[in-house]
Design a protein around this nucleic acid. Sequence first.
DNA 1: GACCTCGATGAGTCGAGCTCATCAAGGTCC
DNA 2: GGACCTTGATGAGCTCGACTCATCGAGGTC
Lengths: 298, 298
Amino acid sequence: MLDFAQLRCFAVVAEELHFGRAAARLNMTQPPLSRQIQVLERVLDCQLLDRTSRSVRLTAAGRSFLPEAQRILRLAETAAYVTRQVAAGRAGVLKLGFTAASAYDFLPRLVIACRTAMPDVTLSLREMVTKDQVEGILSGQIDAGLIRPPVLHPELEAERALAEPLVAALPAEHPLAVRDAVALADLHAEPFIGYAPHEASYFHNLLVSLFAGAGIQPRILQQLTQIHSILALVRAGLGLALVPAAAERLRFEGIVFRPLHLAQPQPAEIHLAWRKESDVPLLAPLRTLLRDMQTPPP
Amino acid sequence: MLDFAQLRCFAVVAEELHFGRAAARLNMTQPPLSRQIQVLERVLDCQLLDRTSRSVRLTAAGRSFLPEAQRILRLAETAAYVTRQVAAGRAGVLKLGFTAASAYDFLPRLVIACRTAMPDVTLSLREMVTKDQVEGILSGQIDAGLIRPPVLHPELEAERALAEPLVAALPAEHPLAVRDAVALADLHAEPFIGYAPHEASYFHNLLVSLFAGAGIQPRILQQLTQIHSILALVRAGLGLALVPAAAERLRFEGIVFRPLHLAQPQPAEIHLAWRKESDVPLLAPLRTLLRDMQTPPP
DNA sequence: GACCTCGATGAGTCGAGCTCATCAAGGTCC
DNA sequence: GGACCTTGATGAGCTCGACTCATCGAGGTC
């Protein structure tokens, strides 16, 4: 079998065309260098170098083999380097799940931040609902997921990646649209587009507890799953809705967004979840990145 | 430094995910296999395999390194194979010079024969006059050349690659064009387009000796170097010419070619020439091919 | 709890590759 | 033409790395 040491010896001798100088460059003495070349020639079953005591020249086989040897050596070096980078979490691919809503604003910012902070890291992104992400993390289909809390599965760990305000989405012609901001009390008995209790349980439960806490009860006309569907009904004038601030980025014409004053100003959270015993090296730097994104430098 | 044995060990373990089976496939026992993997991990400064006494799994670094290791192993094998082929004269590139006239018919046949008999051999062809070819062979610019004899240089060797008849090239309206064939005697005092004594000395000298031997003397109007230039003058009706039979392949309209009866039926020769101490492995198979082309199987 | 599987590890041995010394070929120089 | 120099090949001796064999220990199964 071939041997990297032999390839390196051959490449250097082929460059220097002089065993003594080549041996010096290789930090060895001349006799073992001669023997390495001999072994390589025996392995390849052909002469690579024509040598007399006066000159060293490449044979046709040697000329053909030299670039291959150099290529293999380069590849080996690169592979070793890249592998070290991957192990250190400075390079590689991280398969990341995300929910539809996080794509509105958070995900693009994350991708840009990742590209800046870790240019050799690729995020392989897949949109999945929270439940599928949990299964995907457990099965290894994705390395981590951006999901709605709480993360209860005992094999998973999670931490907050984002907290954002809720805003009121109003038809442009709605009476409340003239206000600068909206309070929960304004929504009492208003026609309201809400979230489906099962498919969008996070926002459903969030709103239920907000309304209960404020002692109000909007008139819930429809309960939908996807934020853009809710906004479509709002635009049609059926009612108003509460959505995460990122939804403003959808730029729905005919809808105005107004800040919603709440005791907890940023109640809508996205968490990063991963397998507790995950050995994916990129997890740590990703978590650092997410933490940095929440506390941007002044 | 990396080691091919380690790469092979890692690749097989990564496939089997079992040290015992991998060791069997590698024709070794399990302890040294474990140690090879440990050494590789130390060289790469990271874990490639997560192993307990119950299971073996790839880490992220291992998943990243595996395809690289496989690629390097494949490359090494291919490089060794190709180099052996080159050394044996079954593959590689042969830089071959040729004269303009040999391109008419002989060279295409040679290229096709070469592609059939030695599919892994590439002919790198360059058109050069005989004198430049001799210099090119001596300087190593070309490995061999198809030139006009005689080859006199003491460092060169040569052998006949082709012998072909001469034919008479006549303007279509020429009186001799009605004949089936032409004899040298017919050319006496005829207007004739000949070859330049220096730039086309081979054909010049050949015709001089033919005419002298036949005791005739055509009226030489012009002496040119290139056969296609000579034929252009023939077509213009200035005179007739004697050209190698391959020139018929030029398909000059307005010219008819007629066999020329001679004592030596194939006086126009092309020889293959090469450096005496050339170590180009492809020379031998090329010479065999050229010999086979001259004595085609029945 | 006894047993089994499987990777890690320790002890002993053998061989590959290193160093040093030397040879042989083929130039150079006086 | 002979002494000398350069340079790659080769031989002897030694060292260190890698293999074999035996065994351990973790973690399952029955």
